[in-house]
Design a protein around this nucleic acid. Structure first.
Length: 436
RNA sequence: GUGGAUGUAGCUCAGCAGGUUAGAGCACCGGAUUGUGGUUCCGGGGGUCGCGGGUUCAAAUCCCGUCAUCCACCCCA
């Protein structure tokens, strides 16, 4: 059998790395300046961590999509299908409720779901995640949403839509679910099988139905936002007021619902167009009560996550320019056997200041210059018998073709001068013209 | 789990009313060029035509099955 990557998993090749780092770096910068600290939790946890977080209504649909297995010690483990449960487990385990409140944590890394693959949906995918734990203040909700928008803007992504809604408090949800049952059960025969099942397990999710008949039945009905108690309503209004005041654009979506039980009040999603059926870049919401559900103190929290693959897809679709790979400043070419180790040694000595590469075998100047050219280097440094006799390197500017013989001892200063003139990370076109 | 499309070189694809030795472009290696790159020219390596079976004198080509990939349904934390 030919070896291949497992279905739904992907290699991230060298050419993919700059744009990937572009996303992580933007998140680190934007979130870091807001005082959000990075946390890294394990890729797998005891299955119970996720099972406890998920709730009853969702366990049927959700657990079958989790990668759960027994290890050799008989422990039942699950590859994380999301970040929140693991981060909150760490919050509890390390007593973070005693830290200055609120505790703001972000993470990034892979997550796993045993779903069928399509565009924007993979079995191993990657997320950037934010949690703000320890405050129920609506300003925290607004800040979380604003930070989400800020990260996307820092990436250069425009034209995404923030949809803001509220699923209310538990009693609001209970009231709304009862209302939906009352309204829809008389028409149960007309509903799709899926929606009938949802009506039984988690009625609000009938709002997510795609079946035209279901949608027609649901269209005239009230939305979760219409069922908020005064406190929930005030919370929602306060969040919206903050976003208005800060100039963060959003659309109110009264019909946003959640598949998981732990969400309270604020729920939001961000969608992008042109990236296929899986248009949600990410979403989040408030989860007061979840920390307690995981065995910790009863502290409130709010969080979000976005899918890195989907954001990159959206960036590509929007034709946003992304950083190119770093190119070498200098490529050293040994032109006789004696120069091979010499070139490698010189390169080592210069790497404190710049990216310097070299050929690993003796190269004729023609081949060596071709190697240098293909490496993307701005300069080639030829080393042969004549150079050795004079203690110099023959430096060639690959863009202009001009050459000079530079004493080896002056290479470090030359490197410093060059690196101060042009940053090491620029795209190909601009560097080619700058390099003259 | 369901449906559609697609599987030919590392990549993008042509070839497919069955017919000799399976092609192109790009990429890679070498030469023209034993001290000067990019351009150009010449040459080369690289293929179980996804896999299995069937039809046929003959299958990359037709038929059946199977696997994989993509897109969509489903599901969505």
């Amino acid at each position: 059998m030919k070896l291949r990557a497992v279905k739904g998993t992907n290699d991230r090749l060298p050419a993919d790395q700059p744009r990937w780092h572009h996303v992580i770096d933007a998140a680190a910068r934007v979130l870091g300046r807001a005082g959000v600290q990075e946390i890294t939790t394990p890729v797998f946890e005891f299955a119970e961590v996720f099972e406890r977080s998920v709730g009853e209504a969702a366990d049927l649909v959700v657990q079958k999509e989790m990668y759960t297995f027994d290890d050799r010690g008989g422990r039942r483990l699950t590859l994380r299908p999301e970040f929140t449960a693991g981060v909150l487990r760490a919050f509890v385990e390390h007593g973070m409720h005693t830290w200055p409140s609120p505790v703001k944590l972000w993470s990034h890394g892979p997550a796993f779901r045993a779903e069928n693959v399509q565009r924007g949906r993979y079995r191993q995918f990657h997320q950037v995640n934010l949690e703000i734990v320890g405050t129920a203040a609506p300003v925290a909700d607004a800040e979380a949403i604003a930070l989400f928008a800020d990260v996307l803007r820092a990436l250069g992504l425009r034209g995404v839509r923030v949809a803001l809604g509220s699923v209310g408090d538990p009693d609001d949800r209970a009231a709304y679910n009862a209302y939906l049952r009352g309204a829809l059960e008389p028409h149960a025969e007309e509903l799709s099988e899926t929606s009938r099942e949802r009506l039984r397990l988690n009625p609000m999710r009938v709002l997510d139905a795609k079946d035209p008949g279901d949608r027609a039945l649901v269209a005239p009905l009230k939305r979760p936002l219409d069922f908020l108690n005064p406190a929930s309503r005030a919370h929602f209004d306060a969040v919206a007021a903050c976003l208005d005041a800060w100039g963060v654009p959003y659309d109110v979506d009264p019909g946003i619902v959640r598949g998981l039980d732990y969400y309270r009040r604020t729920a939001f999603e961000i969608h992008a167009e042109g990236i296929g059926a899986q248009s949600a870049l990410g979403g989040g919401g408030r989860y007061d009560g979840l920390v307690a559900q995981l065995g910790g103190p009863d502290v409130p929290g709010i969080g979000w996550a976005f899918g890195i693959e989907r954001v990159l897809d959206a960036l590509a679709q929007a034709e946003v320019a992304l950083p190119a790979a770093e190119r070498p400043l200098l490529f050293l070419v040994p032109m006789d056997d004696e120069a091979v180790a010499e070139a490698a040694g010189i390169a080592r000595g210069l790497r404190a200041h710049a990216r310097v590469e070299h050929a690993y075998v003796r190269r004729a100047p023609g081949k060596g210059l071709r190697d240098a050219d293909r490496s993307g280097a701005r300069f080639a440094g030829l080393l042969g018998a004549r150079e050795r006799a004079d203690g110099v390197v023959l430096l060639k500017d690959l863009a202009s073709g001009s050459e000079r013989r530079l004493p080896l001892g002056q290479l470090p200063d030359w490197i410093l001068a060059e690196t101060s003139l042009a940053p090491a990370t620029t795209d190909t076109e601009s560097t080619a013209s700058d390099a003259v």
